[in-house]
């Protein structure tokens, strides 16, 4: 058990160094990504001014600002595991991972976790702290714990989703387009473009059956106090169901594709 923790820790530290290798790029990327909520804030200001109402879809202009600001914060902790897995497969690095003590799926998960942890620590948390100062949400210890739990669950679900999708590279080699397509879809259905309750009724019904709402929309609504404990428990059950589904799917896919690994004809 001790050895396993040491192995995980060592892999975590190596991944941390590699993530921070291009620090200036990392900082500039954060800066440009922060312009997105500012654009939406100014756009919605014009919409509220033109509509002449103070509330749209149950949200005031201030809560709209808060929503986009907080969603941008959560977008930094997004899992990029799909790219990592597909690149490792297409570049033939899988064997190297399989020879190491952690194995391919765990090593990939740890690397993705490091990337997300660094981004969460350096961007999500400071932006959320700033949002707390700016918008004064009614945050309690319980709501902070709720957000943390949802972030962990959504990260795990998405990691399993991306791992499964990344394994497609064993069959078709290049899957950059597939990953890009699903990234855009996740972002849109996760609530980065508009709050999900603004979608037409039919679309809303479908969107709320998918796990992508857990990425940005649900944490942002918990942050603003729009989700109570009873609703939260329902969301946790929903997340557990998706975790089981994605976990089973990832296990079955990995069990199948690992038989395709062929080294020196063996």
């Amino acid at each position: 058990m001790d050895l396993r923790i040491q192995q995980l820790n060592a892999h975590f530290m190596i991944s941390l160094k590699s993530t921070m290798a291009y620090f200036s790029d990392f900082v500039l990327r954060i800066f440009f990504q922060l312009t997105e909520p500012i654009i939406f804030a100014l756009l919605w200001t014009a919409v509220y001014a033109a509509s002449g109402t103070s509330t749209i879809a149950g949200m005031s202009l201030t809560s709209m600002y808060e929503y986009y600001f907080v969603v941008a914060a959560f977008a930094y902790s997004y899992s990029w595991l799909g790219w990592e897995v597909s690149e490792a497969v297409s570049e033939g690095r899988v064997l190297g991972y399989m020879l190491r003590p952690l194995g391919f799926p765990t090593a990939m998960f740890v690397e993705s976790l490091v990337f997300a942890t660094v981004r969460t620590a350096l961007t999500t948390l400071p932006i959320l702290a700033l949002a707390t100062l700016l918008f004064h949400p009614a945050l309690s210890l319980a709501s902070i714990l709720m957000i943390m739990l949802i972030m962990i669950m959504s990260f795990s679900i998405m990691s399993l989703f991306w791992f499964t999708l990344g394994c497609m590279a064993f069959y078709v080699t290049e899957i950059g387009g597939v990953i890009m397509f699903f990234t855009f879809t996740n972002m849109m259905l996760g609530g980065t473009v508009i709050p999900l309750q603004m979608f037409p009724d039919m679309v809303q019904k479908a969107v709320f059956l998918l796990p992508f709402q857990l990425l940005f929309y649900v944490p942002a609504r918990i942050f603003s106090g729009a989700i109570n404990t009873a609703q939260f428990l329902g969301i946790v059950e929903f997340a557990i169901a998706w975790l089981i589904i994605m976990g089973m799917f990832a296990f079955l896919v990995w069990d199948r594709v690992k038989r395709k690994i062929n080294v020196f004809g063996i």
Binding site: G177, F184, V193
Partner: peptide, 18 residues
Amino acid sequence: YRLSSVFFILATLLNPVI
């Protein structure tokens, strides 16, 4: 890489949809 290319185009087509 045909499959990837088709999805890349579908992904970029999402821009006007958004």
